[in-house]
Design a protein around this nucleic acid. Structure first.
Lengths: 194, 194
DNA sequence: TTCATTATTTGCCAAATGGCAAATGTTTTT
DNA sequence: AAAAACATTTGCCATTTGGCAAATAATGAA
């Protein structure tokens, strides 16, 4: 069974966290499914038990939820060469309180729960690799969020610009404002003042 | 070699994440060292490569760093029945940018790097247990920090009060203010208004 | 193109927070 | 107890951000 998708980004990413032989790489490629999302499409929905994990080859996703005031909050953005999943709900098999949406057109490689179980059972290093990836991603999130609390909104916006330079003007203000923890009008004014 | 410390909290905590037989439990107990810290004492210092991990039996620690403006920031508090370590620096063996300080008198159980390696080599479930603990702790941090951005300072303070009811008036204002992302005077005014 | 819809900007004013310094309160040392 | 050191509160005012609604701009549909 031949595939025409190289999946190079995924494999190179995994290889950063552990060694894999060609046979293992081929198995991983067979277990991954290409999923193309259009801007605005949803990858997962709140209230459902997540049963797949996505590696982002191209594009940007955002993870969102509704807070107690009913405002939609963008918890974080995830870009190329990262995995997206509500890891808590996925592991515990409980309904997710978050949903994941494509901010731009995306090309994803998706693994189902079953595929991941197979890989875990077949590839001895798999769990170790996944653990390292998970841990690194979570540490990055904490380290990004933590200083934001002490910064003013302009600084937070500038940091976002550094991380996603091309994105700031291509996504709805509301996405970005809720991520930065400010209102749309404040963000609009901050933009103007720069 | 008999020990008079029961270490019940530690063992019960570990057992939440995986099974351990009595022999394994005894080994873990032998590898742990009791460390008593007085309020204000440091458990680890910035600039050093962390070489131990602490389980908090009693008391509260805080994890701190200095931001680019030179302000001391309390990144988070860690309370009883949790592990404390700069996991990133610990795993990568790089100098920590954070330091860990006792907010109250603390009773800790400390594991050295070598002890952890021994445990990892001897107890087959050890790595799995540690990974689950690590992941859970990081997820909790993200989930706590994330909504704070969208809340006003009073709400953040009230949330802190819920989590650490007895603490708010027993620690320096500066610790708490920097955790909440506000100035000492603002926090003082918020307190008064409640 | 034109209309309808949605997103963004702006004005106006209120509320929240910061900056700084002085005043007050608390703790520790001598 | 007195002095010194440190922590907290307060006043004053500036800046930031929010709330709301109207105006404007951009987008998509007919």
């Amino acid at each position: 069974m031949t595939t025409f998708v190289t999946m190079d980004k995924l494999i190179n990413y995994l290889l950063e966290f552990g060694q894999l032989n060609q046979q293992q790489i081929d198995l991983i490629k067979r277990k991954a499914q290409v999923l193309e999302l259009k801007k605005g499409d949803y990858f997962s929905e709140a209230g459902k038990i997540p049963n797949q994990v996505a590696f982002i080859e191209e594009g940007i996703l955002r993870v969102c939820y509704y807070n107690s005031e009913g405002d939609e909050i963008t918890k974080y953005f995830i870009d190329e060469n990262n995995f997206a999943v509500d890891i808590n709900s996925f592991n515990q098999k409980i309904p997710s309180s978050e949903y994941v949406q494509a901010v731009t057109d995306c090309s994803l490689l998706v693994f189902s729960s079953e595929s991941l179980n197979d890989l875990s059972a077949t590839i001895i290093q798999w769990d170790g690799i996944i653990n390292k990836i998970t841990e690194k991603a979570l540490i990055e999130k904490v380290n990004k969020l933590s200083p934001m609390l002490a910064e003013d909104a302009t600084t937070r916006y500038l940091s976002f610009l550094e991380k996603f330079p091309e994105l700031a003007n291509r996504i709805p203000l509301s996405y970005l404002a809720s991520y930065l923890g400010i209102t749309q009008s404040s963000l609009s004014r901050i933009r103007k003042s720069i």
